[in-house]
């Protein structure tokens, strides 16, 4: 029987060692920030350029199809986009396909100082929760009032000044969708293609891969996860939560890459024998 080498032992390392190492490494940058700059993707630039084309009073729908569980990934982009929309003096309609979406809305309002000078129901509103996937998104495109009769607090939609004259996709200038799933597909199929409403995606990092073939022909801009959030924060000149998160990403990614390299060296060494 051949003698056990270090590579053999590394192949059998307890998974909990990796878990602990990962969790500790993730904490270090929060205590000692590295402060490395984040480069900006063309997709994020085109997103902000698209938002900057909005004029005062244009109605924009922000679809929150991500839950509180995805805040570290999705919230920074939602916050950054909301800041730009306020700068453009757009009217913002939020709605959500997550049962906890109202918490995300309230968190956005808490994190964006620009909302302090605005009036709820006049400049921005949260219409609340909807479910039903594509049929509901299609119905929202033709008749918003068939799905939302009130806002999320129960105020009748016709008592909200922001909703005056806003009945369907034809009255909306832009849709921004924050997804952990595939709701943006529905907005592409039911809003972007039939009505030509410019659409953008600001979901989790994997979404970036999924929607890359749509950019820039079908969706005018997109960001992926915390990285995308950090890019937006840099673009609008207001560094925030995502920039901090990206610091922690450095150590965790290094660990994963070192793990892959070590495992492959070990694999090659043991296979040769």
């Amino acid at each position: 029987m051949s003698q056990e080498t270090i590579w053999d032992r590394l192949q059998r390392i307890d998974r909990r060692v990796i878990y602990w190492l990962l969790f500790i490494l993730l904490m270090i940058p929060f205590i000692r920030p590295l402060g490395l700059p984040v480069s900006i993707s063309p997709q994020a630039i085109s997103l902000v350029e698209g938002l900057r084309k909005l004029k005062e009073g244009d109605v924009v729908v922000v679809n929150i199809s991500s839950g509180v569980s995805a805040w570290p990934e999705c919230l920074p982009s939602l916050v950054a986009v909301s800041k730009v929309l306020i700068q453009q003096k757009a009217k913002i309609i939020y709605w959500t396909s997550f049962v906890d979406g109202h918490m995300t809305f309230e968190k956005i309002v808490e994190k964006v100082p620009g909302f302090r000078g605005l009036t709820y129901g006049v400049d921005y509103v949260h219409l609340g929760f909807y479910t039903g996937a594509e049929p509901t998104v299609a119905q929202l495109a033709t008749n918003i009032r068939a799905i939302f009769t009130t806002d999320y607090k129960g105020t009748p939609i016709d008592q909200l000044p922001i909703m005056k004259g806003v009945n369907s996709a034809k009255d909306v200038k832009m849709v921004i969708s924050s997804d952990t799933g595939d709701y943006c597909d529905y907005y592409i199929r039911q809003w972007r293609i039939p009505y030509g409403v410019p659409t953008a995606e600001i979901g989790i990092a994997m979404i970036f891969s999924q929607y890359q073939p749509y950019w820039p022909e079908i969706i005018f801009g997109m960001t992926g996860g915390a990285r995308g959030g950090a890019e937006l924060e840099k673009l609008i000149g207001e560094l925030g939560d995502a920039t901090v998160t990206m610091d922690a990403i450095n150590t965790s990614h290094l660990l994963v890459i070192v793990a892959v390299i070590l495992a492959n060296i070990g694999y090659a060494a043991t296979r040769r024998r």
Partner: peptide, 13 residues
């Protein structure tokens, strides 16, 4: 990997 690590970093923070 980016998505998972960003989520976990939120918990570490």
């Amino acid at each position: 990997v980016l998505f998972r690590m960003a989520m976990l970093s939120g918990r570490a923070q």
